[in-house]
Amino acid sequence: MEVFVQQLINGLTLGSIYGLIAIGYTMVFGIIGMINFAHGDVFMLSAFIALMLFLFVTAWLGIGSIAIALIIVMIGAMLLTSLWGWTLERMAYRPLRGSFRLAPLISAIGVSIFLSNFVQVSQGARNKPIPPMVRDVIVLFERDGYAVALSYKQIIIMLTTAVLLAIFWYVVQKTPLGRAQRACEQDRRMAALVGIDVDRTISLTFVMGASLAAVAGTMYLLYYGVVSFADGFVPGVKAFTAAVLGGIGSLPGAVLGGLIIGLVETLWSAYFSIEYKDVAAFSLLAIVLIFMPSGILGRPEVEKV
C-alpha cells in the first residue's frame, strides 16, 4: 500500500511532465495533421537552455532565492525555446506545406537528428548534472518504517502543470487566437477565406508547443537534476503516446494521457521490471494506435471516399 501510494505520487509527477510535452504534439497534429517528430528534441534542447540559464542566474547574477531563480529560468527558457520553435516551423515545415504527404515527417526526423547532434557537438556528449535546487520533502504518513513522501519539487511540478494547463485551455477556448486555431483545425481553407492568417496561426501553435516543452524541460531538470543530449527521443515517443492515448487534438486528453503513461511507467517499474519499462511504453503506443486510434477524449476519424 505504501509503495503503491509512493509510486502513484511519482507517476503523477512524471505524467505531468509527459503531459506538458504531449500538448505540443497534440496541438500541432490537430492543426496541420503532422507528427512533429522533433518535438522531443525541442524538449531536450529546452532542458539544456534551462540548465544554462540556471547556472547563469545563480553563478553570475548571484540570485540566492531558489523561487525567483526558478521563475526567471522558466520564463527565459520559454522565450528562447519559442524562438527555436518558430524558426524550425519557418525553415523546415512551412516550405513543405502542400508538398507530398511524407515530406513533413521526413523533414521532422531530419530536424530531430540535427537538434540532438547540435546539442552534442556544442555541449559535449556527457551528462550535465546540477546540484539539487529543492530538497525538502513532506512525509505524508509512515508505516512499518516505510515513509510515503511528497517532495516540494513534486508539488511544484504538479502545480505548474495545472496552472499552465488552465492558462492554455483559456487561451484556446476564449481568446481570438484560440478561435483561429480551432478554425484552422476544422478547415484551413475556409478559415483563410474568412480572414484568418493561417500561416501566423500555425506559427503561434508551434510557439505555444515549444514554450510548453520548455516548461517541461525546466521541470525535468528540476526533478532529475541531470540532462544529456540523448534525452529527447524516448520522452518524446512517450509523450506522443500520451497524446494519442488521450485523443489527438484534445488538450485535456493530452494531460490525461500523460498522467496515464506516467503511472503505467512507474507502476511497471515498481512491480514488474525496470529494464522493460520502455518496452511497456512502446507496446502501449502500438496497442492504443491499433485498437483505440481516436483515444479517450478524441473524436473518431471518419474515412472519406
Binding site: M91, A92, P95, L96, S99, F100, A103, P104, I106, S107, I109, G110, V111, S112, I113, F114, L115, N117, F118, V121
Partner: peptide, 21 residues
C-alpha cells in the same frame, strides 16, 4: 566526423525543401 550527423540532419531537411520527389 563529429559533424557528420549534424550535416546529415540538415541535409534531410534541405532535401525535403528542394527535392521532395
Amino acid at each position: 566526423n563529429e559533424y557528420r550527423l549534424l550535416i546529415f540532419g540538415l541535409a534531410m531537411v534541405a532535401m525535403m525543401v528542394w527535392r521532395p520527389r
